[in-house]
Simulated assay, not measured.
Amino acid sequence: MKKIAGAKPLSMDIDKSINSISLYLRFENCGYLIRVFKKLEGITPKGFRYI
């Protein structure tokens, strides 16, 4: 949950890719970040970016 909390502000930066965010937060891969983010927040990181 702490990693997802860290991913939220990073997701708002349109210059950062979701892949680079997953690497920065040390997720196994980009898909895992997306799955966990969606499970906890109900929306994908890319969708969260445009709220």
Score class of each variant (00 low, 15 high):
18 I>E: 03
25 L>M: 04
49 R>Y: 12
28 E>K: 14
38 K>C: 10
16 K>N: 14
20 S>Q: 13
41 E>V: 03
50 Y>F: 10
26 R>N: 10
42 G>F: 07
24 Y>Q: 15
50 Y>C: 05
29 N>Y: 08
43 I>K: 13
39 K>S: 13
47 G>L: 09
40 L>W: 02
39 K>T: 15
36 V>S: 12
16 K>L: 15
23 L>E: 14
12 M>H: 10
26 R>G: 07
12 M>P: 00
6 G>D: 10
4 I>Y: 02
19 N>P: 12
48 F>L: 08
10 L>G: 11
18 I>N: 13
40 L>R: 07
20 S>N: 14
33 L>C: 12
17 S>K: 12
15 D>T: 15
11 S>F: 03
17 S>L: 04
10 L>M: 15
31 G>M: 03
3 K>I: 08
2 K>S: 13
6 G>L: 11
12 M>R: 09
33 L>G: 10
29 N>W: 00
48 F>E: 07
14 I>N: 08
28 E>Y: 03
21 I>M: 12
16 K>I: 10
13 D>L: 04
39 K>V: 06
38 K>S: 14
2 K>G: 01
22 S>N: 06
8 K>M: 09
3 K>L: 08
36 V>K: 05
32 Y>K: 07
51 I>V: 06
16 K>E: 14
4 I>P: 04
22 S>H: 03
25 L>Y: 06
32 Y>C: 01
31 G>P: 02
44 T>R: 07
50 Y>G: 04
6 G>F: 00
41 E>D: 07
23 L>Y: 08
34 I>C: 14
29 N>P: 01
9 P>V: 03
13 D>G: 02
9 P>E: 12
15 D>M: 06
29 N>V: 04
29 N>H: 11
49 R>L: 08
8 K>D: 02
44 T>G: 12
11 S>N: 05
35 R>S: 11
34 I>N: 14
14 I>T: 11
20 S>M: 07
10 L>R: 13
18 I>L: 11
41 E>M: 07
16 K>V: 09
47 G>H: 08
41 E>I: 02
1 M>S: 09
40 L>C: 12
26 R>F: 02
